[in-house]
Write a protein that binds this DNA or RNA. Structure first.
Length: 263
DNA sequence: ATGGCCAATATGATTGGA
């Protein structure tokens, strides 16, 4: 089973690229972020025609997450526990059935948090605390669980081409990385790091300042595996070449292959 | 050249992204 995550930066602007990439990579489950549309504007028929079930948690203008799955959804739940007043569409959880058992998947879009310090950074840190609380509960189920998405977290210096320019940024501040480590330390495996310890693995290149041409990237899109999912890890990778396509997102797809359902 | 973008919006300037 191949599970992927991609911050598409507008589903409508990325429809052609997403279809081309789906044909190329054939993922079974895709976690999308920054769809930037309301539920009824999501082009679900396009993906249903390609054999995917579709779940959407969108909002007007900003944010928005979605799931595509070749397997049927047993449960779909939008929103992250811990703040009923939070209306930002950043979290979508689903339970998926396969012939050999269930897989739980989350598509998440963690707040950027800039500028820091400030209200936006406080929101980011609270959101991370809520994600830790959610994860602690779900790990008790002892299921294969994949938390996939745009974390807006640079975990370590080797995850940036120029770490020195990020030291005061919400993506790399010590409090951000401490919380990410606390999440990992609940028992998750960073899929990319599990198969490759090298630096220079990036998932985002800014549109500005020729960042792509200079390979001035950062690794902020992650697939975190519960112990039961990590036991089934086969491979993981980053589809860097997609960044060179016409009308690219500033993020590229990241995927993991799990030995589930013989796929 | 020491800076360079992109997307959505009752849109032509502002906000958010990272």
């Amino acid at each position: 089973m191949r599970i992927a995550t991609w911050n598409v930066n507008s589903i409508r602007q990325r429809l052609d690229s997403l279809q081309a990439w789906l044909k190329e990579r054939s993922p079974d489950i895709v976690c999308l972020q920054e769809i930037k549309c309301q539920d009824d504007a999501f082009p679900r028929e396009t993906f249903e025609a390609m054999g995917y079930n579709v779940a959407v948690h969108g909002q007007k203008t900003f944010n928005g997450v979605a799931l595509l799955s070749k397997f049927p959804f047993d449960e779909v739940a939008p929103g992250l526990i811990g703040d009923e007043a939070d209306v930002q569409a950043r979290f979508l959880e689903a339970l998926v059935s396969t012939k050999t058992g269930v897989v739980r998947v989350v598509s998440l879009y963690l707040p950027n948090g800039n500028p820091a310090p400030g209200d936006k950074y406080d929101y980011k840190l609270r959101w991370m605390d809520r994600l830790i609380a959610f994860s602690r509960e779900r790990l008790k189920l002892e299921e294969p669980l994949v938390l996939a998405g745009d974390y807006n977290v640079i975990p370590a210096a080797l995850d940036a081409k120029k770490p020195e320019i990020w030291v005061n940024d919400a993506l790399f501040l010590p409090q951000t990385r401490e919380r990410f480590r606390a999440l990992i330390n609940l028992g998750f495996t960073d899929a990319i790091r599990a198969v490759n310890e090298d630096g220079g693995l990036y998932s985002f290149w800014d549109y500005q300042a020729g960042a792509w041409q200079k390979n001035d990237g950062i690794r902020i899109d992650h697939l975190l595996l519960s112990p039961q999912a990590a036991d089934k890890l086969i491979d993981a990778g980053i589809d860097k070449h997609v960044r060179s396509w016409d009308k690219p997102s500033d993020h590229v797809p990241v995927y993991v292959d799990l030995d589930i359902d013989g796929r």
